[in-house]
Design a protein around this nucleic acid. Sequence first.
DNA 1: TTAAATTACTTGTTTATGCAACTATTAATT
DNA 2: AATTAATAGTTGCATAAACAAGTAATTTAA
Lengths: 144, 144
Amino acid sequence: MSTKVEAPLDSIVESARTAFYRSLLHKFKEAGHDITVEQWTLMLHLWQKEGQTQQEISGCSKKDNPSVCRLIDNMEKRNLVLRVPDQNDRRINRIYLTNKGKALQEELINIAQNNLKSSTKTISSTDLKTCKTVLEKMIENLTA
Amino acid sequence: MSTKVEAPLDSIVESARTAFYRSLLHKFKEAGHDITVEQWTLMLHLWQKEGQTQQEISGCSKKDNPSVCRLIDNMEKRNLVLRVPDQNDRRINRIYLTNKGKALQEELINIAQNNLKSSTKTISSTDLKTCKTVLEKMIENLTA
DNA sequence: TTAAATTACTTGTTTATGCAACTATTAATT
DNA sequence: AATTAATAGTTGCATAAACAAGTAATTTAA
């Protein structure tokens, strides 16, 4: 006896996410960069605005504080970012890119953008727009 | 100096996946089930066809063998599944649901379906269909 | 029929997430 | 001012993924 359950949207989202993840990880590696997708995402936030607190990074990356804390631990080990204690409030760390981290910006963004482009090249822009909107609505429904 | 990079589709997919993941995890927990999303997914495969080998499960779940191996380790600990060595080929384990695992089927599927429904209730079925198709094309482009 | 190759699974190591509990610092109360 | 509450970050523990390397059983080939 077996129950058939057609692949639902959530499992397709999961598959798509995994496909993106693996593809990008491999392309970073191919290009000689020992960097994870999560670390890349965090660097993307810092390239947009440096000196953010871990709290702020938690907020915009939608990760919890422990996750951000350890991500930064690992990125400090690899000399990508730096914790700088705030002058006025010693509870706060402000996170800055190292020169090594800054130097990676252009190349990593290129790799990620090419990866995205090659994944969507067969899809019309109106369908892509619809897909984005649908996913955003779902996120809203799930987190409301 | 800062570089603006608009939220691209891959990051939206990641956010949607995370939203699904957390929401489902909470709903399982609320209902009193100490079960992870990954474990639920594996059970879904087994509900459709019992007695699969770890190899087969790796294939259909798109996880690698070590991931499946440890997932099953954890599920055996919780008495959800059972490894049964194959009679003819002792390299092979066939994975069966325990009675406890079988008993969860209806309720867990209900929870997951309700979660999915509530996430998509504000979205037209044609847009949902488009979204699915787009994601499937992207997966194909990324894994080709 | 024995050695080599293949297959199925397992283990080790690093990175990451979820959650709870903890420390240090600052702000708010009384 | 001293106590309490809140905030920012850290650590501990369980689960999971990626990847490499290992073991055991079965095939294939010499």
